[in-house]
Simulated assay, not measured.
Amino acid sequence: MLTDSFLDYLRYERNYSDKTVRAYGEDIAQLQEFMKEEMGESDLLRVDPDLIREWIVSLMDKGYTSTSVNRKLSSLRSFYKYLLKQGKIIVDPLRKIVGPKNKKSLPSFLKEADMNRLLDDTDFGEGFKGCRDRLIIEMFYATGMRRSELIGLDDKDIDFSASLLKVTGKRNKQRLIPFGEELEVRMREYVNVRNEVVPGRSDAFFVRESGKRFQPTQIYNLVKRNLSKVVTLKKRSPHVLRHTFATTMLNNEATLGAVKELLGHTSLATTEIYTHTTFEELKKVYKQAHPRA
């Protein structure tokens, strides 16, 4: 059989895993089943571009994502290229087939009301740990810095007199981020508690109870644990707070260029994804509020 020969080729000549080979086989069988329903036959050598296009439409109608459909098309492309090399077909039926475009996922972010509940109404606990954990959440939200930038922050990088933070981003590129009075109060409070409770510590601004710098996983778990108190978002990572910072700034009339500099993006195109996020939020508000939406 053509399919068996192709799968043996993948398994023994291309060294594909059993799982991958099985997925290729299932994709081909799914097309064959569709062909049988539409044409009353299942000869894969008689597949044409029109049938492939109809199959794509049927998959999308059944709720398959564009990513899933494109993965199936990739399997079929490999199959028909193999048949072409074997001389079983003269023309590849997928030669001019274009799969559905994959949708770009918009960044997850918290609404201002959720952030207010988190920072104003949530109990972070008493003492050094509670003071520190709350400040970490607020630092992400107030500055938009990356997780690695927060972990790498040292005492010397904070200029209280100028209200500036110096962070080291990707490719060791440094930038300055301003901070406001509210964050300054929290930072000074934290420093006082930290210096009293953790005498022997590293140069890091944020430290664990041992005085050592945080590991990335520890910051991730800290943020996830606290975001879970107010939201049920699938993603509850430090990067969500970075997205929240950018979205909040743009919703409150900050310019795209200013947000780009604050986030440390090298290209304005990277920052522009947040304009889509704010527009999606506007569409939701419109649909909820307008009687003719």
Results as ranks from 00 to 15, higher is better:
residue 3 T to L: 15
residue 280 E to A: 14
residue 102 N to A: 12
residue 127 G to W: 02
residue 76 L to W: 13
residue 229 K to G: 02
residue 221 N to T: 01
residue 68 S to G: 08
residue 43 D to E: 15
residue 271 T to V: 02
residue 112 E to D: 08
residue 18 D to Q: 12
residue 292 R to P: 10
residue 222 L to T: 01
residue 15 N to D: 13
residue 10 L to S: 05
residue 104 K to S: 01
residue 86 Q to S: 05
residue 169 G to S: 04
residue 249 M to A: 06
residue 127 G to H: 00
residue 56 I to M: 15
residue 285 V to I: 14
residue 156 K to A: 14
residue 23 A to W: 07
residue 235 K to E: 04
residue 254 A to W: 04
residue 122 T to Q: 13
residue 216 P to K: 00
residue 84 L to T: 10
residue 31 L to A: 10
residue 128 F to L: 09
residue 170 K to Q: 12
residue 118 L to S: 14
residue 221 N to W: 00
residue 48 D to Q: 08
residue 70 N to M: 08
residue 92 D to L: 09
residue 223 V to A: 05
residue 81 K to H: 12
residue 184 E to Y: 05
residue 106 L to I: 01
residue 266 T to W: 04
residue 107 P to M: 02
residue 136 I to L: 06
residue 178 P to L: 05
residue 181 E to C: 07
residue 290 H to R: 13
residue 173 K to C: 07
residue 104 K to E: 00
residue 214 F to G: 01
residue 120 D to M: 10
residue 158 I to Y: 10
residue 177 I to L: 15
residue 184 E to G: 14
residue 276 H to P: 04
residue 40 G to C: 09
residue 108 S to Y: 01
residue 121 D to P: 05
residue 89 I to L: 08
residue 158 I to Q: 11
residue 71 R to A: 09
residue 7 L to I: 05
residue 268 L to F: 05
residue 242 R to L: 02
residue 25 G to F: 11
residue 41 E to R: 14
residue 238 P to M: 12
residue 25 G to L: 13
residue 78 S to I: 06
residue 274 Y to V: 00
residue 119 L to H: 11
residue 100 P to M: 09
residue 111 K to N: 13
residue 282 L to T: 14
residue 129 K to W: 02
residue 277 T to L: 01
residue 48 D to K: 15
residue 246 A to G: 05
residue 16 Y to N: 08
residue 287 K to C: 08
residue 261 E to I: 01
residue 291 P to W: 11
residue 40 G to F: 10
residue 1 M to C: 07
residue 24 Y to K: 12
residue 289 A to T: 15
residue 246 A to N: 03
residue 81 K to D: 09
residue 47 V to Y: 10
residue 203 D to C: 02
residue 61 D to W: 08
residue 49 P to V: 13
residue 6 F to A: 05
residue 58 S to R: 15
residue 139 M to V: 13
residue 149 E to M: 09
